[in-house]
Amino acid sequence: MSSTYDRGTVENFGRWREFSAGMWAWVLHKFTGWILIGYLFTHIAVLSTATGVDQAMVEANEDIYTNTLQDLEELVIVRFLEIGLLSVAVFHILNGIRLLMVDLGVGLESQDKSFYGSLALTAVIAVASIPTFLGGVF
């Protein structure tokens, strides 16, 4: 027993196929949480640098802020990203509520079902949002 073999940390990722519901919920919660943070900062950066104070331009609907938003909304990719953002936010909120329940010790036996429920509800809401987000693009 002179030496031992340490298989390292990489093995965790190799086993993703065997992840259980709770593990997927954790991975997705982290992922969505950080996406939301990322979005929040981009959002602030874009909007805070797109403000013009020229009153005449504002009245003519030609100010930088309006232009920026209109330009962005014209991009198809942005419309799709918006659906993605909504899904990410909805999942994070639903699973966040699930996690709060877990913290309170409520319904721990059905934690896997509430995870699948969060996923399903997220999917439904994402699909339902398509007409709104993609309306007038094509």
């Binding site: 259980s20 593990m23 919920a25 721990l108 036996e109």
Partner: peptide, 18 residues
């Protein structure tokens, strides 16, 4: 982090996370 992995594998079905 309430991943429930332990509860899932425990051969004695102990509700560990709980």
């Amino acid at each position: 982090q309430t991943q429930f992995s332990c509860t899932e594998v425990c051969p004695k079905d102990i509700p560990l996370t709980e």
